[in-house]
Amino acid sequence: MRRKLILDVDTGTDDAVAIMLAALHPDLELIGVTTVDGNVQVQYCTDNTLRTLDFIGRGDIPVYEGLHRPLTRPDFPIPRAIKKSTGVHGLELPLPAPTSKKQNKHAVEYLIETYRAATEEIVLVPTGPLSNIAAAIALDPKFVERVPEVVLMGGAHHHGNVTPSAEFNIWADPDASASVFAAGFRKLVCVPLDATHEALVSLANVAAMEALNTPAGTAAARFIDRRIRAYDANQPMAERGAAPVHDALCVAYLVDPTVITTDFRHVAVETIGALTMGRTVVDTNFRGENPPNCHFAFHADRQKFVDMMLKTFARTA
């Protein structure tokens, strides 16, 4: 049986790759996509999501637009206006404008209604700021118990990206993130930078995707090529000519859990630090008083991840 999932995204080049992996992998059934303010403003996230789905022939998957700003803060900890493009995403993805339209329902309503009505397990996969998820938790007291598993991309233990100690998704809406980690989900899997920076995709991999000569191969090659150039210029990885494709690693985990290696630890989110705002505080040394609540991925299997994408992007809808 195919695993059902909902993606909550801020598309975004790596979200787009995650969407294609979820929409095309034969073991997965992507039942809906919700969007949230993050990499770009939410209307662009929605538009980019529609473009991506249309391009690979999966315009049938419904897209719901969500929060246009953090849940409680008026803006990111450093205002959006100062947030310059790092070139990793761009405003509009380099694909034709979409023909499908977003649904006339708010993302948070969709999430609550879908889980209330669900008769089968649906994994929730947030790969952007956690504003929609925190809103659903706040609105529906039963939401948390109805979600069988959350697999999110966010956080960092050894080094951040947006600040020395924080990763963008968690940092962008730290209060929402704190609420999601503290909510008590039955199973919470966190895929942080520690794992995604081990699952780098290289220019050679990009060439192989391009050579698939499929819509997904072409789009993935285009997005990841852009990521590699931006990473090389602004936040070089240990290896030049390679970049992380963070969000897609969450989707890969749903198909093959061995694509990451996790430790079961307590994780909370710092919401008042002057230097550490939005840091995932991982109790690696069991110093805190709280029991573990999160499977935190410290490592990833790069080859398995790349192979899965290549195999999946060879498919057409």
Binding site: F76, I78, K83, K84, Q235, P236, M237
Partner: peptide, 13 residues
């Protein structure tokens, strides 16, 4: 401990 390039990044100070 981040590796940063030379381009000023706005929010990624």
């Amino acid at each position: 401990l981040r590796r940063l390039g030379n381009v000023p990044l706005g929010h990624m100070r």
